[in-house]
Amino acid sequence: MYVVGIVLAVLFLFPIFWSTLTSLKSPAEASAVPPTYLPSVLTFENYVKLNQYGAGIARYIFNSAGVALITVLGTVVLSTLAGYGFSRFRFPASNLLFLMLLAALMIPFQSILTPLFLLMSAVKLQNSLIGLALVYITFQLPFGVFMMRNTFDVVPREIEEAALLDGCSTWQMLTRVMLVLVRPGIITVAVYAFLNSWNEFLAALILMTQEVNFTLPILLTSVRSGYYGAIDWGALQAGITVTILPCIVLFLFLQRYYMQGLMGGAVKG
């Protein structure tokens, strides 16, 4: 069984491993026909070449990271507030509003991209990191609110009652008492928001039409499609490595939270 497991593991890791290895070959060797298996020298030249595209790789990392950061912050703040509200308070139409927020889970965002594009153009947020992040927040909110409501639901009420007797206000309750207790949920929501924002392709392709505002996946597609001349395979592998490495590192460190989100959705959904 171990043998099967190891063979499969090699197959699963192979494409990523090969791409990273190729990014470290010399540019000539990375484009060699037929391809070589192992690099004859290890060098960062492909990364230097990658940096010569468009506005430089730093700019595109900044774009992707900026959008992801705004998405994470926006999603976490809105989801935490709403999750607290739905979990601990009764108010008219609360169930209806909750269902409305979850409805976006059932409607694929591809189907409303056209009006979103017009909306963003109308408020001058097309080609803007904030505009793209707003679109991403919209599609992270259903999962975020659902996750946070469930997280608040399992915090014992006795803790709040004790804090209330100590004269804690509703706002203080959330910021001083509850936030610490729901931190696992917040991390789960943040991990999903980051990965989905960092990796998203279609909305970024539609909204970011100016080269300087491209996110990493859009930049790489331009490199690949020969937008900058002949395809530089070494630079492309360097770009792919830069794009997937943060995702893998984040996942390896926060795997527990990621899986919790998946299981929570599977059990409750």
Binding site: I16, F201, P217, L220, L250
Partner: peptide, 9 residues
């Protein structure tokens, strides 16, 4: 691991 990298990438 392949699940967490982007589909575009």
């Amino acid at each position: 691991i392949p699940v967490v990298i982007g589909l575009g990438t």
